[in-house]
Design a protein around this nucleic acid. Sequence first.
RNA 1: GCCGCUAUAGCUCAGUAGGUAGAGCGCAUCCAUGGUAAGGAUGAGGUCAUCGGUUCGAAUCCGAUUAGCGGCUCCA
Length: 634
Amino acid sequence: MNVKLPDGSVREYEGKMTAFDVVRDISEGLSRMACAVKINGEVKDLTTELVGDIDEFVVLKFEDEGGKKTYRHTASHVMAQAVKRIWPEAKVAIGPAIENGFYYDFDVEKPFTPEDLEKIEAEMQIIIDEKLPIDRFELPRQEAIKLMEEKGEPYKVELINDLPEDSVISFYKQGDFTDLCAGPHLPSTGRVRSYKILSAAGAYWRGSEKNKMLQRIYATAFDSKKDLKAYLNMMEEAKKRDHRKLGKELELFALMDEGPGFPFFLPKGMIIKNELVNYWRDVHRKAGYVEISTPIILSRQLWETSGHWLHYRENMYTTVIDEDDFAIKPMNCPGGMLVYKTKPHSYKEFPIRVGELGLVHRHEMSGALHGLMRVRSFTQDDAHIFMLPEQIKDEIKNVIKLIDEVYKVFGFSYHMELSTRPEKSIGKDEDWELSTQALKDALDEEGLEYVINEGDGAFYGPKIDFHLEDCIGRTWQCGTIQLDFQMSERFELEYIGADGQKHRPVMIHRVAFGSIERFIGILIEHYAGTFPVWLSPVQAKILTITDRNNDYANEVISFLESRGIRCEIDTRNEKIGFKIREARNERVPFITVIGDKETEDNTLSVRMRGKKEDEIMSPEELANKICDDVKNKK
RNA sequence: GCCGCUAUAGCUCAGUAGGUAGAGCGCAUCCAUGGUAAGGAUGAGGUCAUCGGUUCGAAUCCGAUUAGCGGCUCCA
């Protein structure tokens, strides 16, 4: 048989050969690194017996996505085996590889304790040291079910029953442990070189809160101890930039028992929030938006019209005023619709872009709250755009560009997702087709990459979501662009077309920051608290050496403030080293020392972030430098 | 909301075996006026989250509540 390698060369073999034999034939070194192979487009076990000519034979190492998955999936089986050895009555559920590691779900009498996890980790090493060969075998459905029933694994039986009729049912056996699994796997448990159990947590069987809660163990595995250590170090470092920790240290915001999920902004955090809002207004004014503000509390009747009273009630805070029901707005759209209706509109006005920095309240479940990332009251940088159907595509492009422009200012990388019509949805087929196509065309014509989430759209229209990453790699949805046919229908929005007739406008609903609170949370982590000058709560801090320098220092402060610079002065009776240490911990971008020398020469000794040497400059020069940085959003 | 863990001074955390609490930082006062990441001394500050139980006695053991943390679910 002929095997074609990625470099184009072809190797000839005779007789029984496994993929691993070929790998070993290519190089001994490679065989030690190999995790799996890709044969004619399919990722397979190294133990796979080769049949016939192979046009594509790619060896997958840990660095390769398929290799990493295989490696960690095997590690998850080793973990499951360890758990079964210690608690034979434990029922195994599923154990896939995930982004940075893997997990396995178990149904056990008692949740795992930290000591249990240590025991499991130790047992895993024993299994690895046993170097158990991992063998694949297939069974017909009935026998597969019988095997799992014998082993007392009801979850596996359920999984088998749910497999499509024609699917191959495969198992992997390693020593005393056999698991239903599609594979592929490493050839031996001895091939797992380093791993670490990270945490245990409850998780619903099949992800539904209606099902039993199982115990999930999260862990990770790498092909070398060095890489594992590097990963664990990285996670430690990431924790240091957690926005909740930095938010407290830098006095940006606070969360209190008195308002769970309702964040308090402290003076320094408020500066960041206001700067973001100023920037937002500037960008939107230039992009042709007008701004409105609608009430936070509106009548029940309005929410019935919008459908929220029926569909979103459990997330809404309600109140009673003069015996009538009112609700605190969870979204801004209904208010925006009322504003649209304050006067008749002509097609000539379109597109009408109406922005609103709306404070919304949503009752999120207590367990879902997370710092500023997931709160119960937040400010959406909302806007509703009313337009003609033929304007959809261009307008979507405009919004995509605007959001991209905004994210670029902060140096964010992000990914986009397009969500299409869900099963439960309302509206005409043609509207869905038209709008989904418009979203797709806009993305494609701009040459943008995106993933499609089939059926994940809102019930009233398809959407494009923008996702940003936090410091430990979790992604948070921020920007979103949603087509909405529901609202204009429900609120009977109208415009007079060129034909003199009344029509329904098309509406999009979009946010760029998403939630200013969440965006700030991500910014804190993104910059690790070291904000660019324009966002820095304190841009310059003046430190005096002795109180002989106070008068000059105050003069300098007044001058800088007259130029709109946010500054602080530290005339405390402390040593300069101590004052510098504090100013640096506060991440002040321009730390200015004034001693006798500077007082005499009317100069400043300025330490700029990231530079080791101080720079001597005049107050004028410092002010210009800071103003330039602010202007350039540096 | 669900599973698990946690709650001690403004902050970060000790508190071994039930016998009414400690450190560092911060704060206040005093000394030192000191040139680029912590000068020294003294002092104030705690119903040990809340409520209830066990006990002669609870920060410590048990239960409930509240909030936080890690996940699940949900979402900007």
